[in-house]
Amino acid sequence: MPLSKDPKNDDHTYEEHVRADLNRWIRKLLQKPGFLERTSKVIQTKVNDKIPEKVHTVITATVKGLVKSVVFGLEYIPNSPTFYGMQLQERDQRAQRLLVKYRKIAAAEGAGTGAGGFTLAVADFPALIVIKMKFLFELAHIYGFSTKDYRERLFLLYVFQLAFSSQEKRPELFQVILNWEKTLSELPAEAGDPQQIDWEQFQREYRDAIDFRKTLQLIPGLGAVVGAWANYGLLDDLGTIGMNCYRLRIVGGI
């Protein structure tokens, strides 16, 4: 997510600049589906019907396990420190470097599994989810939010959903993120049953969002190139939304 040039190294100026970036991003995020998006959805549905059931099963099981492991487990919590007391501009710069690193990791993983035929291409789906979640956890720490708190891990799941949801679902998810401080005040201090997440809908939205790009990876001869391209793009999408969700929390709305 390229940032506009900051004319001065001034905190107030930079925050105003970020607010303008956020306004543009939100308008684009919440715009109604156009003709291209509606047409793509029809094609996507047809493609989805032709994907082997094995792929659907892998994605469903992975997403279901993801929700539980993120909310209740500690396996994704990074060793990196939580950066407190840092200016937003420096956080953004660190986040950009982190995104560059994870885009390369995702592209390399996609190229490797894509070149290995159908079995490895199917294995790429859960592997890519792990890469995405590790990125989000490190991103949270860069923006000063500790993932040792399960409520921050729950926030990550909403960010993940927002990145890979349909255009129709995005306004609802965005409102949850926009009003997260209110949601925080209503959550218990300890993790309970994460009923806030409908994992079945979660996996359907995620599957539909990645189908068109990732399904091409299953085509013989195209796997390595498409796998790298798809994974790079999917990480880039997640990075843009993840960074802006945290920027939105830091500047306190728009």
Rank of each mutant, 00 (worst) to 15 (best):
K148M: 12
Y143P: 04
R94G: 03
K104W: 09
R153C: 10
G85D: 15
T113L: 14
F125S: 01
F145V: 08
I105H: 09
A123C: 01
K134P: 00
G73F: 05
Y76I: 02
E152D: 13
Y76T: 02
R153W: 12
G144S: 13
D124C: 02
K134Q: 15
T113V: 06
S146F: 04
G117W: 08
L120F: 08
F118E: 05
F72L: 13
E90V: 10
Y150H: 08
R103T: 08
L162R: 08
G116D: 09
Q89K: 15
A111G: 11
V100Q: 15
R151Y: 12
A106D: 04
L88T: 06
A107L: 02
F125M: 04
Y143E: 13
F155A: 13
G73H: 05
V130I: 12
L74K: 13
A123N: 03
F145S: 07
E109R: 13
L156M: 14
G112E: 07
L120E: 11
L162H: 10
T113D: 10
A163G: 13
H141G: 01
V71S: 04
Q96N: 12
K132H: 14
A108N: 11
G73L: 04
R94A: 08
Q93I: 13
D149V: 08
K148Q: 15
E90T: 12
